[in-house]
């Protein structure tokens, strides 16, 4: 479990520090304050294969970037102010903390350096391990090269639920991954929060399609998920990801997307419960006060199992305001804004 975190020179953050984390962690903040960037920082930090993580964040999520461009012009977007640091200068640091100190053995750094032949490299270090990639080569070479490293043993217990919709093939893969572990029942149970008559889920071949599509059995009838509204699809995405993240980590961006406030409490209940039973550490973001209230309802009585932080940006600096359960209670009971 990640008990604290620091990110430096990453995306919008010159520096952000979170001194206490728990099993379930919620981050609030205004638009463009860096909530998604924080999840991305966690994603790279917790990912077994950093280049795979970077590839995913820069190429799959941000489609305007092309893998045919050189590494320098794509990777610069990860750095503070979209600027590559000069060779040898301090770059990105992602780490956990021991008190106020960075834990070197658990740190990830990403910076640039000049090689023996005067070519500039991207240097990614994790603890004592170091990997170098020429900055002039294509971004896709960087990605291919990463796959050849011997520590490519990505176990898949880190899952990122983006704020936007679901990739069909990806969801199918998640479903198939848990086929032999009787964990599909967790998903079916969670889906009943919205559709009480739902009894089963299957992924079936469809005409004129290469991928399979998700269908639910509702009151004996087969209904495609795509026809069932945003809420149930969001729960499918969140819970299926969570079940796939056993003994690992789940990142959820904009938790409330598609979820009516009346169901959010129950979804948090499932998340708090699975976080324990499947041993998953959860990091979620929101800007909805309904989501905060729903989260609070499950936090009560589980004070040590969760944390809540608001990310603030003032005077060109990021800071975090931590809330204990009693702090949140003070705010909610006096109708005071938390976001």
């Amino acid at each position: 479990m990640c008990n604290s975190f620091i990110a430096k020179n990453f995306r919008t953050f010159k520096e952000i520090k979170i001194s206490k984390l728990a099993k379930v962690n919620l981050f609030l903040g205004k638009n463009s304050v860096g909530k998604t960037a924080l999840l991305e920082a966690f994603y790279i930090y917790l990912h077994e294969n950093k280049t795979e993580a970077i590839y995913e964040l820069l190429l799959k999520k941000e489609e305007h970037l092309s893998s045919k461009e050189d590494l320098a012009s794509v990777i610069k977007h990860l750095f503070y102010d979209h600027k590559l640091p000069t060779p040898g200068a301090e770059g990105i640091l992602l780490s956990s903390l021991n008190g106020k100190k960075v834990v070197k053995s658990k740190s990830v750094t990403i910076k640039t350096d000049t090689g023996d032949t005067f070519d500039d490299f991207l240097v990614i270090t994790k603890g004592v391990k170091e990997q170098k990639y020429p900055l002039v080569r294509d971004f896709r070479d960087f990605y291919r090269q990463s796959r050849m490293f011997e520590d490519y043993n990505y176990k898949g217990n880190l899952k990122f639920v983006y704020s936007m919709g679901i990739d069909n093939a990806y969801i199918t893969e998640l479903w198939d991954n848990i086929a032999f572990e009787s964990k599909q029942d967790f998903v079916i149970e969670a889906l009943k929060i919205i559709e009480k008559e739902l009894s089963d889920v299957a992924f079936i071949e469809a005409k004129n399609r290469r991928d399979r599509i998700a269908i639910a059995k509702v009151s004996g009838k087969k209904v495609p998920f795509k026809s069932m509204g945003d809420g149930i699809n969001r729960i499918l995405h969140i819970i299926l990801s969570m079940v796939n993240a056993q003994d690992g980590y789940l990142l959820i961006d904009e938790f409330e997307n598609g979820l009516h406030y009346s169901v959010q409490e129950q979804v948090w209940k499932v998340i708090f419960s699975l976080a324990e039973s499947l041993n998953v550490q959860v990091f979620a973001t929101t800007h909805s006060s309904d989501c905060i209230k729903a989260f609070g309802s499950q936090w009560e009585g589980n004070e040590n199992k969760a944390t809540m932080h608001r990310i603030d940006y003032k005077d060109q600096q990021h800071s975090v305001m931590p809330y204990d359960f009693s702090d949140l209670n003070d705010a909610l009971s006096t109708n005071t804004e938390v976001r």
């Binding site: 205004k30 603030d312 809330y323 702090d327 209670n329 705010a331 009971s333 006096t334 005071t336 976001r339």
Partner: peptide, 15 residues
């Protein structure tokens, strides 16, 4: 007790 809660809540506000 709500006065005490309100002090804390205001101090933690973004604004």
């Amino acid at each position: 007790s709500q006065v005490l809660s309100k002090i804390n809540a205001l101090l933690r506000e973004n604004n």
